[in-house]
Amino acid sequence: MEIFSIYLTGVGGQGIGLLSEVLLRAADHAGHQVKGVDTHGLAQRGGIVVSRIRFGKAVYSPLTGGRSADLGISLERHEALRSLQTAVKEGGTMIYYDAVWQPLGVRLGAGGCADEAIIEAEGKSREIRVIRVLNPAVKDPRMQNMALLGEIDRNNLLPEIETEHIKEAMTDLMEGEMLEKNLRLFSTGKP
């Protein structure tokens, strides 16, 4: 593996910062050279948040180009569809948590609405493997990121990164009850 690129998206407020930091540090613990960058923009105001992580041998820029990501990760379904169209490469994988935070246009009934079938079809049309995650046991929306991370790991979507590396990364970033709760959800899929 030369370089592996991850394109991570969500909506401001969904907790993509923590997910992205865990992935970045897990790649580092696994001994890869890694670079990452978050694009905040006006994200705190319900806009799109994008985080990019690239690891492998010689990584220069943390920025990925259009349709070049090996793995797309999204915490929201409309953003999953958008990533499929703009960021993930043919033959890549897209995993998303099926939360719905409707953009204004959808709320107004102006079209552009995403659902499971549309996302599936979009993936098929470009030979991208699509994995949908929804865990009804997770009640706290701010824990959806860890539920998704667990599925990313169980599906072995991160090459040359082991479960232990992800746990080490989580231990770098959290402690006490918070860490326990997140580790439990990550490892067992149960909150």
Binding site: R45, P103, G111, G112
Partner: peptide, 17 residues
């Protein structure tokens, strides 16, 4: 240039919380 996606997806402008 990239071909267009199969289906349309609504833009997501920033908004008040």
């Amino acid at each position: 240039p990239d071909a267009k996606g199969k289906s349309e997806v609504s833009p997501r402008p920033a908004q008040l919380c």
